[in-house]
Structures are given as C-alpha cells and as structure tokens.
Design a binder for these strands. Structure first.
Lengths: 219, 219
DNA sequence: TCAATATCTCAGCCAATCCTCAGCAAAGTG
DNA sequence: CACTTTGCTGAGGATTGGCTGAGATATTGA
C-alpha cells in the first residue's frame, strides 16, 4: 500500500518513512506544499500524511485544492502543539483526521490503519500470543481469563511486541515506535519497562542479548 | 550503482571505497565539503555518504545547500561519537540516516542498502547454505529446523561468510568488514571466532590454508 | 491540595561475550 | 625427518550488556 508523507522537517519525514516501510507500506516523501500537491494529484495513494505548516503552500491549501480536484484520498493532518484552531480548519478543509505534534509513531500508525479502512479482520484488534490476549479496543489484557492491569507505556510496549511475533525488536526500534521523536529516552528505560512487564507477565518476553527482545512461549 | 563518499580522513575514505567497490558499487571520493558539494550537484548518485566534520564546508551545510538546490539524493551522515546534538542537526538538515563513528563496515553497508531501497526481495534477508539458513530480519539461524544460538559477533561473521558463498574470505577482509576501523584486532581473533562457529555448526566452514575461509557443504 | 501512580534515570551487580595469549597440532618444505 | 609456517583451542582477564532496587520528578485523580 502506497502512502505520501508531506513534511518539511526532514528528521520527522525520515523517521516516518523508515517506520512505515517497516510496516510494509511504500512511502513517497515531499518536502513542501507544492511538491506534495504535485505528487498527490499525479500518483494514487492510500493515505496522505500532510503537515499543516509547510513552505510554499500550507497544508490546508493543499488539502482544499485536492478536494476541489475531486481527489478524495484520505488525509491525515499533522498540526503543531497548541494550534487548536488549526485542528478545526484542518478538518474543515477536508482532512479526515488529525494528530498533534509531537506524537509517538505508534499513534500515527494506528490512525493510518484506521484511514486505510482495512476492514476489521485485517487490522487486528485482538492480539494473541500463547495464553495471553490483548484487546486494543478496550485496552484489556488477559492471561487465562485473568485481567492484568497495565500502565499506558506498559500497554504500548506489549502491543508493539505482540504485533511483531517471531521478530526481534531492538531497544532503539522500541524507543522510536513507542516514544515521540522529541523524547530522547535511554535504552535502559526500555529494560526497565521490560522488567515491569515480566513481573506482571512471567515467562513470555525473551532477551536476545545484543539484539533486542522477542515475545513468545517459554522455550 | 554510483555512490559519493565525502570524508576528510583518507584512511577511512579509502577503506570505504575499497569495501563498497567489493560490493559492486562505483565510488567517487571527495575530501572536503566544497569538493563534496560540487560532485554532488554535478553527478547523479544513488547515495551520498557525508562526514559531519569537514574542511571548508561542514556536512550540515553541504546537506542543506543540496536540499535547497532540490537535490534529494539520500544522504547518510557520519557523526563522531558523543556529538549527539549533531545527530539531530544532521537529520534536520536533510540527512536521511546517520551512523556514529566508529562503525563496522557491515553496519554502513546495511544502511546504504536500506537507503537505496532495493525493495525487500532484492536485498536478501534469508540466506541459505546447505542445510543452514540465516534470517537477517529476526536474527535467527537454523540448521535442519533446529535453532542455533549465536552471539552478535558470531552472527556477523556467519552472515558475512554466507553472503559470499564460494568465495574465499581472508582474515584481513573479515576484520575489515566486521570490526570497526579503530578496533585493530589480531588475525587470531578471527580464528577463535571461526572455532566458535564450528563448534556450533560442524562441517560447514572450510579453511583454505594461507588464504582464508569459505563456507559450504562438507567436501 | 495531597496522595497515589506512573515515568524515567541512575548506580551497582552479575553474567555473557569479547579478545588475547600461549602451547599444541597440522601442513608445507627442503 | 627436522624445521618452519599456519591454524586451532583452552584458559582467563577485560569489557559490555542487561537486570534491578532506589529514588527524583511528573501526572493523575480524589
């Protein structure tokens, strides 16, 4: 599935491209409004991720022009913090959803998935690994019918692990996925959260020294 | 595929050129920022490998100027250790990825491949030799469906051997590829690691006395 | 507002891993 | 065979990676 990211901050653009490609999307980048508009009106995208503040042509204008051209590709608008009015104008201009910076990548991914409208059975909302289930609709984690209480971060980490079974996820990947791009947390923080999860869910998360972590049945 | 390396330390520049050429890239070298900028804006490269600290014009400036000229060639920025802020400024200036010195050549190669975005099926992630498979996605090594545990260095060495089947790799080549250029390890270290691998994976790695090692079926 | 909870860092510990060394084995040479 | 060169391997010290308890700071909720 092909996505367009229109974002002038290269750091963010590069991070999104990398993350989305890991999730098997094909990603095109545009660095200003005009370029974004050109791409969007030439190519056929599943979703357009569009920053609000852009050089040459701002997001709202891009959005409006596309809608005038009868291009109804779903648009996810990125707005800087505190620009609440912009949210409104973003939605009025024809955007389908918005996200406030700084956001965690996992957050963006969830919205993109919602917009691609993969019917429910494709976007897994009930994840299962061994005797553990995680429901992303009601944020409930159960092990053998017993509910486990998790904090927000613990839940996000567990969800990420469970969405990538049989995959080793490095601490850096985990940080890039769970924390927002301004956060700058230490790898040790991941170790600590893995520790928390293991206390509540023993024998499920495995360390692969030098590489990262992996979830799965006891070996 | 043509690459540009902009690096003032001749030792590193030469090592990169040599290694990349062995991987069938054509490599141009530039030794300062101005020269690098000239090359980059004249020729057409698949990726630009750009040191941050450079005489005449630093990497960030080169990067910014190129982007202003609307040259969006993927840039891999090399930053010295401990210059964490530089990472940020590197990405903000328009670089697509960065690598902290000192790095192992294998590391750089992986990033270059990621940036040229040879789609997944072109960059082999599942290597196979005889009854042995190595998966670079989940770092899993299997022999006849049986998982073999390897340390990081062991894995890197095995991957290098498997990526060059029917090729004799000398100890020096192995050192240049797996260890970073500051490491300066003895050839004997390679012998030791070959020994470790042989213990875990008997009858696969062959010594060609005087030349090096080669992986393959028992002869 | 105050207490409970959550987030994140830090320092110290332990164990796996890395790498060197020295002695031995095997191969090559006259 | 004697001698040299090259490779192999067990032992062990140094280094690194990962885990955890303690605590400082931020956030939430009564």
């Amino acid at each position: 599935m092909r996505l367009l990211v229109v974002e002038d901050e290269h750091k963010i653009a590069a991070a999104l491209k990398k993350g989305l490609e890991q999730e098997n999307y094909a990603v095109d980048l545009a660095y200003d409004g005009e370029e974004g508009y050109d791409f969007a009106s030439t190519e056929d995208y599943a979703v357009i991720i569009l920053d609000l503040m852009l050089p040459k042509m701002d997001g709202v204008t891009v959005c409006k022009k596309l809608r005038e051209d009868n291009i109804h590709t779903p648009i996810l608008m990125l707005t800087a913090k505190g620009e609440l009015d912009d949210k409104v104008s973003g939605l009025n201009s024809g955007a389908d959803d918005y996200l406030t910076k700084p956001f965690a990548f996992a957050e963006l991914l969830a919205r993109v998935k919602a917009l691609t409208r993969r019917p429910k059975h494709t976007t897994q909302t009930k994840l299962k690994v061994a005797d553990l289930t995680l429901n992303t609709n009601n944020y409930e984690v159960k092990r053998n019918a017993k509910v486990i209480q998790l904090s927000k971060k613990e839940f996000a980490l567990l969800e990420y692990l469970m969405r990538h079974p049989n995959t080793i996820l490095s601490k850096d990947q985990i940080i890039a996925h769970i924390w927002d791009y301004e956060a700058d947390v230490l790898p040790n923080t991941v170790e600590v959260y893995i520790g928390y999860l293991r206390r509540k869910l023993p024998n499920l998360i495995h360390t692969i020294r030098g590489f990262g972590y992996k979830i799965g049945e006891a070996k």
